[in-house]
Amino acid sequence: MARWSSWKELPIGNILPTPGSSAEYKTGGWRALKPILHKEKCIKCLLCWAQCPEPAIDRLDDDSVKINYDYCKGCGICAAVCPVKAIEMVMEE
């Protein structure tokens, strides 16, 4: 995402003039362990959605959830809080 070709073009003061740009930074590449959601076990309690620090768990219209692997860093909190063990952490390939 090289926007500037020289330090001379940078806005001064380390400012990033476009807000919300953190979405451009895909942190999924940091992941060592990958959460796998077993949908058939999910009871739609939304604990994982509420506690994901990223947040990289999307809540769908029917209160089911979807893991966003672009941003999931693989911390495993979702798997730890799931009361029915519907999320399994596996080694990232």
């Binding site: 995402m1 090289a2 500037w4 020289s6 330090w7 940078l10 003061g13 380390n14 400012i15 990033l16 003039p17 476009t18 807000p19 740009s21 953190s22 930074y25």
Partner: peptide, 16 residues
Amino acid sequence: PMTYGPLDLQDYYIEH
């Protein structure tokens, strides 16, 4: 709105 002092890793820290 602008971001002041954002994360600035290998890609631009040295230019700043």
